[in-house]
Design a protein around this nucleic acid. Structure first.
Lengths: 340, 340
DNA sequence: TTGTAAGCGTTATCAG
DNA sequence: CTGATAACGCTTACAA
């Protein structure tokens, strides 16, 4: 049992089974178009078992010129919107015989670039980027001819993209508030350099317009830098005609706002209705949060499916896939309080 | 610019620079003990730039017999306790030139075993398992002589293990409640097949004992199968002397309990104090949750450090590292209500 | 049906 | 200091 040093190779198997190395390869891969007698097949399999032989995937990759590995460039796996995406990607990858390399970029374009180079060296078969921040990466992918699908944004026409229907999601959220009788509806959001943010603002405005409610820029709070919910609340409630409902960019922001308002004595949803976005944390609060659910798992899974298709057939037409969001009505929204 | 098909190889570089392939390898790796004239070095680097040459890491792995890749077997990356661990692992891996393969096992031992085989074939340099469920995996790692470090449990003596101080964490939580005047303190927990659960129960009992409070089995609710917080609350509050404080196994459970109690008209923390464990979700609730913070990021980082050390020096003594937890006092705990 | 031999792109050993 | 040449372990024509 002193099998200390080296792992057995196909050579060892071949020798033990009394066949050639190619025969071993043929039976192990069930190489189509090649027939092996039951007799030798059995001998080979026997030898494999005895030696506990594991084919060396590295050598295989080198010979076949593919690694069956894909990479996921994620902003930060510790951010609650990404684990489910990663999960979706991994599930699809696994079912197709691919492994998943996880790369946190923190949105730093230098890190993205470094990881891009590493993945090029490691010859991954394809890459999924969640929210690309350096378009140079896209250029490299094209130049090096490596499949790359983008999750969320940017919506580059030269790459496959999978994203959620932010406009509709946002529209539904605001329309829900309107149907509850609210007309003073605030939207608090982050820097609109990302198209996602723009789309949500668009949905917000569209719902107001469809309901005949004039857009009031006092009710749209955009934080170009760090989001300051406290400041937003201060400003929102110091205007003559303050909002009776707030639609936040994310569940996280909605929860912060809920906390601030609660601390100030407002009752939710009696005094103020609140809607979030994402549905990552919405079920944990008291009261639970009405929110727009994003299909994170499905987005990841779809991105992985598209990537794998493209790996297998690089000439497929580019796809931009929009996945539906869903309004989840919980406890943080209620009809407009008459006297407020 | 029609560089369609194949990526350039060290051969191409050598030819363009007018040197041999080994020279290219030497300058690119700065091979120690080998001096290259500034002249040729420059020519090689020039050629690399012109061809945009990326050394093939697969070929390198094959030649060097190491992949500089590690795998993380995680129960489910979508479970909020794991993303931070993964992040800690990835950060350390990246800084040491390793890449991270993410494998979700869902605690299914068959999946673990399959992934183990895949990682063996892919010749990863080492594996970190978060909560191993199939000890066969440990056996294989030993037999195949591949470094494996365990996060959390089980505490196998033949492997490096990194875990949090559950006993102390639990003790601190319960002692905090005792100091607030509570004597009827319930603990709701999951199946104690895992040592983690046992340790938390141990800390709970130890705190009671140190305070001279007799242990009452009516107050310890163990769910061997699916946790049913509703049932736990029902039973707990139907006994003659119901609890005034509840210590839950996790933040998630604590939040469910908080919701149920709130729905039934209890005020938290005035009527009932609640403590969670993990600190993954505790800051999101209203009121925010007092909890025991686990150092997930550090656990991941430490596990990765140990793994990489061991890869580089397999003869190091086995380490079992216990990391401290920290009680975070927020709003869900208060002095015992006199009349309750 | 099975065996032989030529890649795959590096690293590493040894002469020169 | 530089250049052949042999591994590394597998796949895959091409022969037999």
């Amino acid at each position: 049992m002193a099998k200390k040093k080296k792992a057995p190779t196909s050579w060892d198997v071949a020798r033990l089974a009394g066949v050639s190395r190619s025969t071993v390869s043929f039976v192990l891969n069930n190489t189509p178009g090649i027939k092996i007698s039951e007799e030798t097949r059995k001998r080979v399999l026997e030898a494999v078992k005895i030696l506990d032989y594991k084919p060396n995937a590295i050598a295989r990759s080198l010979a076949k010129q593919k690694t069956e590995a894909i990479a996921f460039f994620v902003l930060d796996i510790a951010n609650p919107v990404f684990p489910n995406m990663a999960r979706g990607i991994e599930d699809v990858a696994r079912h197709n015989g691919y492994i998943l390399l996880l790369c946190n970029t923190d949105g730093k374009s230098l890190r993205e670039l470094r990881y891009m180079n590493i993945m090029l060296e490691r010859r991954v078969d394809g890459i999924i980027v969640g929210a690309l921040s350096n378009e140079e990466v896209s250029k490299i992918a094209q130049k090096k001819n490596i499949p790359l699908v983008i999750l969320e944004h940017p919506r580059l026409p030269e790459h496959d993209v999978v994203y959620a229907d932010n406009i509709k999601g946002s529209y539904d959220a605001v329309m829900h508030l309107i149907e509850l009788g609210h007309t003073r509806i605030a939207h608090i959001t982050i820097n609109p350099e990302s198209i996602i943010v723009q789309e949500r603002i668009e949905g917000y405005k569209k719902a107001l317009k469809d309901a005949g409610i004039p857009f009031d820029s006092d009710l749209l709070k955009i934080f170009y830098d760090k989001v300051d919910e406290e400041l937003a609340v201060n400003e929102l409630f110091s205007i003559p005609n303050p909002p009776t409902a707030i639609f936040a960019f994310s569940d996280f922001m909605a929860i912060q706002i809920m906390k601030i308002l609660t601390k100030r004595g407002y009752k939710i949803p009696q005094d103020i209705s609140i809607v979030g976005f994402d549905d990552t944390l919405a079920d944990l609060t008291i009261p639970s949060l009405t929110t727009v659910s994003q299909p994170f798992y499905e987005m990841g899974a779809k991105a992985a499916e598209i990537l794998i298709e493209r790996i297998k057939n690089p000439n497929l037409p580019i796809q931009h896939v929009k996945l539906p969001t869903k309004l989840i009505i919980r406890e943080s929204t209620a009809p407009k309080n008459k006297e407020s």
